[in-house]
Design a protein around this nucleic acid. Structure first.
Lengths: 374, 374
DNA sequence: CCTGTTTGTGGTAGCGCTACCATGATGAGA
DNA sequence: TCTCATCATGGTAGCGCTACCACAAACAGG
């Protein structure tokens, strides 16, 4: 322990009683109150959207806020509000690109609302339960669960029973017993399939996602329904099982593209598998999109970093996770002491993003030559 | 409306008329002080690692902290500390996978230290300067700059002159005039090249990164030096220019793999281009790694989501950005009012990650048949 | 008219921590 | 011995905001 005499950098200002603590003159709630000619309390009420404020008072306050360019101090807010909300984000090996989007959304929102976020990886559902029990003991209030954890009712029940707030992000369907933020997986897959059909394809392959995730089934159903609605028969040989990983996508694509009568388009249940499909197609000297159309799902960063860039369904993962955090904060705030909170549910819009991996079937391809022939 | 008189038979002198605000009994600095039999101030000093605390007192405090499982309240801390530090993170189109790691590190650390983080995209250096001027006006104190922005001395000077704190993350070399967090790019490229040589390769191709970034040149130099040290001559036809994008990697790989006397190994300056090289190799029916070894740089998530997974240099991007945030916080804290701060510099360790995209040259390949022949 | 109830607003006391003194104890120098 | 610097520690006053209560004004019902 080096004794340091370098305290000399310190400056003993002995003059005035006490130096002002505030260095930068960012406006405070008091400044706004003065400007609006009311009390800080009233300003606080306006900021927090409380009921009992007269309309004209509210307008004056809003005007003052705008004029002073006031932004509430987060630290002060959460300090005054008392308890610091703590949320755990658990995950059990979703695809890496999905995860990074996922984390980003959560971190951003948690940072914005000054929420403490614990990120925890679990090997499987059993381990997740152990971890959750520990976190519950530690007093963590909120839990964010991506698939496949959010598809396990036991996990959800465990949290609910202990009085925690669970929000599923991107589950296949919402169970109603807990919070959820999701997109209409079925409809999205339906739309994409319809889009591919609209390009003129008839032999459309499909790569299923991880069977543990309910969403995988929903996407498959969307595909089936769209095919049926278009009067196209489904060749079960054109449906391959994947696991959402790149590697599994290669295997599935190999099967589909190697078939005697190969599809002219392949719709993979996520971008990782779609990217793998593109790679396999290239390996077989098939051009994407001219020989095979390949479409993905999720619109992770991978979709636009490979070439050709993938036509895919944009799932707003970041917003979804951010909303999940916000939802927990909201529910937590309104939750009665010791009581149970009413779960909310939120369905966000997806979007079909068209890039360069799809096209109409080429004449040659529609004759379905064996791969590799000139 | 409970009148005070009936609420309490306790204390007529206004003593305890208010309900406790704290709901959960998380230990506070006062609890620790009581346990350690000293004042809260002393505890605060220990927490903040200040000098003037006797060793035995410090130990008592640390013991109390451990015993109570005390964690300082972030909100209270930054509120009491006065100014909320604000940091801007600017970027000008680095690769997407790099960016996501980058953001993650910054967000995490900012969240931990309760720092307000502004994330801003800029089209080019000119726009960056405009943006920075605006942010400086807005009183943003810290600036985090990834390449290529951190390689532009004008940008750095602009911030320094205005009294801001700039930290470059991953610049080719540190200029000394500003903070920097980096790895030894030259040495890393040298090591990787040597690794490839060690596998038995002699014709080793190289794909250069975006020429705007100083690091690109450093990596090239590392390659050149390693080749020279091993007594291998460099065929300039085996060096191709890329831009760090997947697309540019495809073009470069096409050139290298299409050459009459193609390389048996290709070292790409980042993972995106390496992934593209793998794709191009597959397209030419070359197996990776048996026909061509392909190595990348950065170890972004892409490296391990394709197949085969890439042997690459792990650059700890997340830690680097986190360190950059911490560095700004540190420098800001010690900076004299209105004065200029002393820039710090930090070099982190890189790591060669060996995965499945490298192997010794095959007998066939070492004869360098034209591609495609049996 | 007196009692309640509702509504809008203000006052005050913290939330948990740290900046800034003040102070008593030690040691160094006169 | 008596200064005066230095150290180790304590006390106090906020940081900016919100929970909680108080209270006056406006209305309701008796």
């Amino acid at each position: 322990m080096t004794k340091q005499a370098e305290t000399l950098a310190h400056n003993p200002t002995q003059g005035r009683k006490r130096a002002a603590r505030r260095s930068n003159a960012a406006p405070t709630i008091t400044d706004v109150a003065r400007e609006a000619q009311c009390s800080p309390m009233t300003v606080s009420r306006v900021i927090n959207g409380e009921e009992n404020v007269r309309e004209d008072t509210k307008q004056k306050v809003l005007g003052a806020i705008a004029k002073l360019n006031y932004v509430p101090n987060r630290a002060a807010r959460s300090l005054a509000a008392g308890s610091q909300l703590r949320i755990a984000l658990l995950f059990d090996n979703p695809s890496a690109s999905y995860l990074s989007e996922f984390l980003m959304g959560a971190l951003e929102e948690a940072s914005r609302q000054d929420i403490y976020l614990v990120v925890q990886a679990c090997e499987n559902v059993a381990e997740a339960q152990k971890v959750i029990r520990k976190l519950l003991d530690g007093g963590i209030e909120g839990y964010i669960l991506p698939p496949p954890l959010c598809d396990d009712q036991n996990v959800l029940d465990l949290i609910r029973t202990a009085g925690g707030i669970a929000v599923a992000v991107g589950p296949g369907r919402a169970s109603g017993s807990h919070g959820a933020v999701l997109i209409d997986e079925f409809q999205a897959a339906y739309d994409m399939t319809k889009h591919i059909i609209g390009l003129g394809h008839e032999r459309i392959g499909f790569i299923i996602g991880n069977p543990e995730q309910v969403a995988s089934g929903q996407r498959l159903e969307g595909y089936r329904k769209a095919m049926g609605d278009a009067g196209l028969s489904i060749d079960e040989g054109l449906i391959a099982q994947g696991q959402f990983t790149y590697r599994s996508g290669m295997v599935a694509a190999e099967k589909l593209l190697g078939a005697a009568h190969r599809p002219t388009a392949i719709f993979a249940s996520n971008d990782d598998m779609a990217a793998a499909t593109v790679a396999m197609a290239h390996r077989r000297h098939l051009d994407v999109p001219n020989d095979v159309t390949v479409c993905g799902f999720d619109d992770t960063e991978l979709a636009s970093s490979i070439w050709p860039e993938l036509t895919t369904i944009r799932q707003p993962i970041r917003e979804m996770t951010a909303e999940a955090v916000a939802m927990i904060a909201r529910v937590h705030k309104h939750k009665p002491r010791g009581g149970r909170a009413k779960p909310e549910q939120l369905t966000l819009a997806y979007q079909l993003i068209r890039r360069n991996s799809d096209a109409g079937p080429s004449l040659a391809a529609s004759f379905s030559k064996p791969p590799g022939s000139p």
